[in-house]
């Protein structure tokens, strides 16, 4: 799973441009399940279990990542861009990016600190004043390399560091994709549906369509969520803690979770000796927000890998948490299929 995750994180795939991620996932699950791509680009897989399921269970993870889209080119050959998904301007100034199909290298520049007024030394420029510099001498030469509408991804190396941590762009939510690939390849007790969904970061658009198509009784959203377990933050402000297993949500900004499912997840984890923790803040949102409202309603559960610095070129999580998230997703899929 580690190599799969590394590969998945390296692929570009902002919302609406998930094709490279989808192609790779297909290459990994082909021969292990039935699958098709729907109208929006969601990759829907059906995995036959050793037994048929009493309830239809859908496991979801989104394929897209946050990034940017080129909106125009200046006369000087610099690229203007818009955010795709929520990104704090602080984390991408002074970073490398890759633009378009050919992954043209570029950088996000800033007026040197020497030339800013003393009182502005800490002021982050507004995103609209920033540009991507690909080194072009002017508009014409820039347009030979890139076009408005091109996707822009963070250029993020995959690094293993510290005490079992990994750091990369797009761990949100290639971690979920890696878990689903692993489950599909490993064989399941009960029949199960999977949705590798598009466009989560721009408003959970893909999952709305795929949930309608699959029409599940239960859904498990496999995600990443903020771990604020950094120095100086204590108690429930940490939201969840790296190394303590999947965060189980009772409520976030887009979903009030089924309380029985939430409890069952924590109980099951305990029984099976899988690390798990409660997500201790009502924050964030994910595909569950779209899925629970699908058709006449779906009972949903979200299990998330605790991840620091989400939506940045350097998301940080513990590999062992991805493994325990997979284990609990698998256990819960079985529970829900037969209950």
């Amino acid at each position: 799973m580690r190599e799969t995750l590394k590969m998945l994180c390296s692929l570009p795939g902002i919302s609406g441009r998930e094709n490279k991620v989808r192609d790779y996932i297909i290459s990994q699950i082909d021969g292990f399940c039935d699958y098709h791509t729907d109208n929006l680009g969601n990759l829907i897989a059906f995995k036959k279990g050793r037994q048929s399921a009493k309830n239809k269970v859908l496991i979801d993870a989104h394929m897209d990542e946050v990034g940017f889209i080129v909106t125009g080119v200046t006369d000087d050959g610099l690229l203007r861009f818009a955010n795709v998904g929520g990104i704090d301007t602080k984390v991408f100034i002074g970073r490398n990016v890759a633009v378009g199909e050919k992954a043209v290298p570029g950088v996000v520049g800033i007026v040197p600190v020497h030339l800013t007024e003393k009182e502005d030394e800490n002021k982050i420029p507004v995103a609209d004043s920033l540009y991507i510099d690909i080194g072009a001498h002017g508009r014409e030469s820039a347009l030979t390399l890139v076009s408005p509408g091109d996707e822009v991804c963070f250029d993020g190396e995959f690094t293993e560091f510290g005490d079992g941590f990994i750091c990369s762009k797009a761990i949100d939510n290639r971690a979920g994709c890696a878990i689903m690939i692993d489950l599909i390849r490993s064989g399941l007790e009960y029949d199960c549906f999977f949705s590798f969904s598009v466009q989560e970061e721009v408003g959970t658009r893909g999952a709305a369509a795929s949930a309608f198509g699959v029409a599940p009784d239960y859904a498990i959203v496999t995600e990443t969520t903020t771990a604020a377990d950094i120095s100086g933050v204590t108690g429930e402000d940490r939201v969840c803690v790296c190394g303590e297993g999947p965060a189980v949500s009772f409520m976030d900004r887009s979903t009030v979770y089924d309380i029985d499912l939430y409890r069952k997840a924590l109980e099951t984890a305990k029984q099976k000796n899988i690390k798990a923790q409660t997500k201790t803040r009502v924050a964030g949102g994910n595909d569950a927000g779209a899925i629970h409202k699908s058709r006449s309603g779906v009972k949903v559960l979200t299990l998330s890998v605790p991840t620091r610095y989400l939506h940045s070129p350097g998301c940080v999580c513990k590999y062992e948490d991805i493994e325990s998230t997979r284990d609990l997703v698998k256990a819960m899929a079985e529970e829900l299929a037969k209950c």
Partner: peptide, 22 residues
């Protein structure tokens, strides 16, 4: 060794710090 500069998670960010580096 590798390290990464921390960032304040959105739920802990104070309104008055918006648009400011620490």
């Amino acid at each position: 060794i590798f390290g990464i500069v921390t960032s304040t998670p959105p739920h802990l960010a104070k309104k008055e710090d918006e648009g400011k580096a620490p």
